[in-house]
């Protein structure tokens, strides 16, 4: 728990640094990149002694269940796929939104708190050989849906 609070504060400061300090209110690229970089390296450490995943579905399951639980302290509430490379992860109490009020004004700020995670997931998948696009939507705080689209060339 004590490390969690430290991380949450760091995350909040990273958000401020990337968006406000550089006057880039709507440019989430730096935030996404910090997440990407973290995810890429973290997954390397987590999987280096593990057998390779047998296919995309197994990789996705690993990221959306084990990896998610380790980082976000809870299991995702729902994981769905259309079997055509589109995965939707639903978290009804997303870690970085649980201390924020549910109002309309707060909802405007919600995107700030999901982009690091979009990058984190994309980075982890990239390292495991899957090229993807990750987006998130917040309709009601603290719930969040992440859409992971596998880019097949």
């Amino acid at each position: 728990m004590s490390e969690d609070i430290l991380f949450d504060f760091l995350h909040a400061e990273i958000v401020n640094y990337c968006l406000h300090d550089n006057n880039k209110e709507n440019d989430f690229s730096a935030l996404e990149y910090i997440g990407f970089n973290t995810g890429y390296r973290l997954i390397e450490r987590l999987t280096r002694d593990a057998p390779r995943f047998k296919d995309e579905l197994e990789t996705m399951k690993f990221i959306c269940t084990d990896f998610w639980t380790l980082i976000y302290k809870k299991q995702v509430d729902n994981l769905r796929t259309n079997n055509h490379g589109m995965y939707v992860v639903q978290d009804k109490a997303f870690r970085f939104l649980t201390r924020i009020s549910t109002g309309a004004k707060q909802l405007e700020h919600a995107p700030k708190f999901v982009f690091f995670t979009c990058g984190l997931v994309r980075g982890a998948l990239t390292n495991l050989g899957i090229n993807s696009t990750v987006t998130a939507e917040v309709q009601t705080i603290p719930a969040c849906k992440f859409h992971i689209e596998i880019n097949r060339n």
Binding site: D4, L6, F7, L10, I14, N37, T38, R41, L42
Partner: peptide, 11 residues
């Protein structure tokens, strides 16, 4: 979790 923090800070 410790590595997560370390790597995020590094990023």
């Amino acid at each position: 979790n410790a590595e997560f923090l370390t790597l995020t800070y590094g990023a």
